[in-house]
Write a protein that binds this DNA or RNA. Sequence first.
DNA 1: CGAGTTTGACCTGCGC
DNA 2: GCGCAGGTCAAACTCG
Length: 179
Amino acid sequence: MDNYQTMFHSSSSSSSSSTIPQSSHLSLLNYMVMNSHAQDHQYLTVDNTHSQGNNTATFEGNNSIIIDMKNETKPRKKKGDKGSKKARYAFETRSQVDILDDGYRWRKYGQKAVKNNKFPRSYYRCTHQGCNVKKQVQRLSKDEEIVVTTYEGMHSHPIQTSTDNFEHILKQMRIYSSF
DNA sequence: CGAGTTTGACCTGCGC
DNA sequence: GCGCAGGTCAAACTCG
């Protein structure tokens, strides 16, 4: 049985699970579900509630985001890798800026040119002590306004800015996804 | 001076 | 086995 859980809980507590970017520059387009293989992901439009297969809809109202956490991330052994399987969450945002302020502090640890894409992919790690969350940020070459952010892992600590809890973030998303 | 960024080297998995 | 692509490391560098 695949591990599978919703990542974003519509709770008022700013728990460790909220990683939705809250940039004022973005409009949320799609969430992308990452399965074990990179080419196996599927786009899930932010739309009315629906569910498909093992996915669950977690948002009410106009926006529904389906998060799939089949923890089948391709086991990519590398030095220092604990071999843990981590779910990855990706979503597209239409934004002029690459770096979306999601409330956490990130340290860039790498950048790579990506095949078939004129924009490089940037690799970030959460700087919070003991927090192993990573994210990748990449701009699409076919649509330069779209930034794909992929999160890997769960934050083990609260958001580090004084900004909002999840409800606030959700409100922002409704605003920005009103196209 | 500490925190974060840059960037080339290195490692690993995968396809051929 | 080899080459490619993606991901990570780490030293040098920048910036506040």
